[in-house]
Computed example of a mutant assay.
Amino acid sequence: MARKAMMVLAVVGSLASFGCSSQQSSATATASGGTATAPASAATPSRSMRVETIAKGLEHPWSVALLPDGAFLVTERPGRLRRVAADGTLGEPIANVPAVYAEGQGGLLDVVLAPDFATSKKIYLSFAEPADDGTAGTAVATATLVDTALHDVRVIYRQQPKLTGGAHFGSRIVFDGHGHVFISQGERQDRMKSQQLNMLQGKLVRLNLDGSVPRDNPFVGRKDARPEIWSYGHRNMQGLALDPRTGTLWESEHGPRGGDEINIPQAGKNYGWPIITWGIDYPGYKIAESVGSSAPGMEQPHHYWAKSPGLSGMAFFTGRPGSAWNDSLFLGSLAESNLIRLSLKGNAIVGEERLLQDEGARIRDVRVGNDGNVYVLTDAANGKLLRLTPPGT
């Protein structure tokens, strides 16, 4: 691919910032009562933010990992993993990537560096894995990155059972810093499987780094439940991130028509899908299995949107008290084609701002670099890798 010179765009007042009513876009749910609190106020506008195009020509890029040397690893949904040099040069596809089921929403999904990447060169990939009978399921593989090829590729997790259809694979990968890896996935558009503990669809999974099951997982020892499960009742988990301030895991997922939500998933808890939801079915009527927005024994979301942004990747921006973006949570928006910035006070969401409106692009992934910049992927046939420099930097 041709080298792409970086382009700097002045981003001024057209970056919309707004507070949303719970009827229109966002609301915060209480932990126990299940009612919506007052809507979040508008975040401080990021009018002096700078946006640079690092690279373009990526085919439906899904995830980006930031390499220690300033380069990037980017997954393309059709099944390619590419290195993007710090100057934007696109490398040829990296060899030995696992075969993917590329129909519908399937394909090559998340890529993350192992905690010991500096010495091991190991990476983790999530992907839609095909079976010989036409079914597919979310899977995670580890591999060693050596120059332009993967070596020692090993699948450490497979969603069981595999199902037909090309929707709701998830999937994100996060390490907890204590020897465990969390894997998010969807319910494959088979709604009630989210509630069935003997199946892995619609479950947040927690494993040891080698794919074995931790002894303290909440369902270990139960004959009616898969031991890999951490939490359940999820729909299609597209975002997963660890809060650097506390080590707490946050998760985001698509609702149906409305009801996109953020959760802080706890061990063994049921997050309700499809029995409870703040959304409705796509044709405009009630979800058939739903009893409403609350039910005994089912958790309320930490935050939800009555109008779905189509949440994707998420990342925390913390530990930079001099930055206008300190203590923020960024989330990509697919349906509304922008980047959401939530202002945080502790775990409370106190403001919301929409960025990159002028790009008019579906935002698939967002990562925060050690350099204090934010890196974003746009989901398109000619997708881009962008760098956002915070206001005042």
Rank of each mutant, 00 (worst) to 15 (best):
K4H: 13
A5G: 13
M7P: 01
V8R: 13
L9P: 08
G13P: 07
F18T: 08
G19K: 07
Q23D: 10
Q23S: 10
A36T: 09
P39Q: 07
R47W: 14
T53E: 11
T53I: 06
K56S: 15
E59L: 11
W62K: 03
W62V: 04
V64Q: 10
V64M: 13
P68F: 13
P68K: 12
G70A: 09
F72T: 05
T75V: 09
E76L: 13
R80L: 13
R82N: 07
G88H: 07
T89F: 08
E92H: 12
P93M: 11
A95M: 02
A95S: 12
P98Y: 06
A102K: 13
G104T: 00
G106T: 01
V111H: 11
A118S: 13
L125I: 11
L125K: 09
F127Y: 15
E129C: 11
D132T: 09
D133M: 09
A143R: 05
A143T: 03
P161S: 03
T164W: 00
F169G: 12
F169H: 08
H178I: 04
I183H: 03
Q185S: 06
Q189S: 09
K193I: 04
S194A: 15
M199F: 06
K203T: 02
V205G: 08
L209H: 06
V213I: 13
P214C: 12
D216N: 14
F219H: 10
G221P: 06
R226E: 15
W230S: 02
S231G: 10
R235E: 08
M237H: 07
A241L: 03
R245V: 06
R245L: 05
E251C: 00
R257W: 07
G258V: 01
G259L: 01
D260F: 02
P265D: 09
Q266Y: 02
A267V: 00
K269D: 10
N270Q: 02
D281A: 15
P283M: 03
P283F: 01
G284N: 01
K286I: 14
K286S: 14
V291C: 12
G292Y: 00
G292K: 03
E299Q: 09
P301E: 04
H303S: 03
W305A: 05
A306C: 07
A306H: 14
S312D: 12
F317A: 03
S323G: 08
N326R: 05
G332A: 08
I340P: 03
L342G: 12
A348W: 00
L355F: 10
L356P: 05
Q357E: 12
R367W: 03
D371E: 06
G372V: 00
V374S: 02
V376P: 12
L385G: 12
L386T: 04
L386F: 06
R387N: 13
